[in-house]
Amino acid sequence: MEMKEMTYKDAINLAMSEEMRKDKNVIFMGEDIGLYGGAFGVSVGMFEEFGEDRVKDTPISEAVITGAAAGAAATGLRPICEMMFMDFITIAMDNLVNQAAKMRYMFGGKAKVPMTLRLPAGSGTGAAAQHCQSLEAWLCHVPGLKVVTASTPAEAKGLLKAAIRDDNPVCFVEHKLLYKMKGEVPVDDEYVLPLGQSDVKKEGTDVTIVTYGTILHRVMEAVEAVEKEGISVEVIDPRTLYPMDTETIVESVKKTGRAIVVHEAAKTGGLGGEIAAMISESEAFDFLDAPVLRVAGLDTPIPYNRNLEAAVAPSVDMIKDAIYKVMNR
């Protein structure tokens, strides 16, 4: 497969552009995504290539963006929307939760809602409490929405293309710290990764860690450190958070007997609890040899102070400590 090194952000741009070239029904809208190229510069060049009919700047109203997208999707287009920050879905929730997520179901499958909502999420950029949240658990709680997240540039391309091609509303969570991450990305414009499939990022025998997004890279760092001490860790990235490929996780935990879920989102009500509960309800229960641990964000708004901000999210040391704990070391 021909590969090209590019950033996560460029991989997203490429995924959108390829789909827009391929299918004229695919349109893109959001705040400042046109000439300005988006708050994080993700859509640079797209306005020039596709014009203002297909790359539309919207008013500063997230409700308008999701409402218009849901309507456009139901009537034949395949809109991609960008929320400037994931935090702003709070305003878009009615259109997203009560309309977009419900239409296909309530119309007995006669209406499709093929819209994709791109959601820049997470802390680490010093953007303070209203621009740093990881609200994916909210979305996973709404049947009718799919929730996807990519932790590498290649996956960003492959999964976003799958999201755009999906006939359901898909929330695509992009961690802001990943935008500048570089990686090899397949050039093939048919490189599409299936939704609903976990990816085993690393195989191991002693502990299973389920994680996604930017934190996955901290997990890999921690895992590399403990491997030197003889602890073998399997790392699973669910990639599609809802509906999640639980089988891969369950099989892994049956093998290792220990599980940790790591995410940046606040611990209480976060996906970690869901995954831990899923594991203990599953066949893996009998194989558990330690409590399932969650390493997650503190239950606090994200602080503006850089040091405090860093302290809120799971660190490499916190992840290592959790590994030692389940290993009784």
């Binding site: 007997g257 229960f285 009998d286 194989f287 558990l288 040899d289 330690a290 409590p291 009784n328």
Partner: peptide
Amino acid sequence: TPAARKAGREKNIDLKLVKGSG
């Protein structure tokens, strides 16, 4: 742990007699 209990069941070992390391 559940895994220890399972092992206990399979080996017919009364876990009360086993010294736990955790």
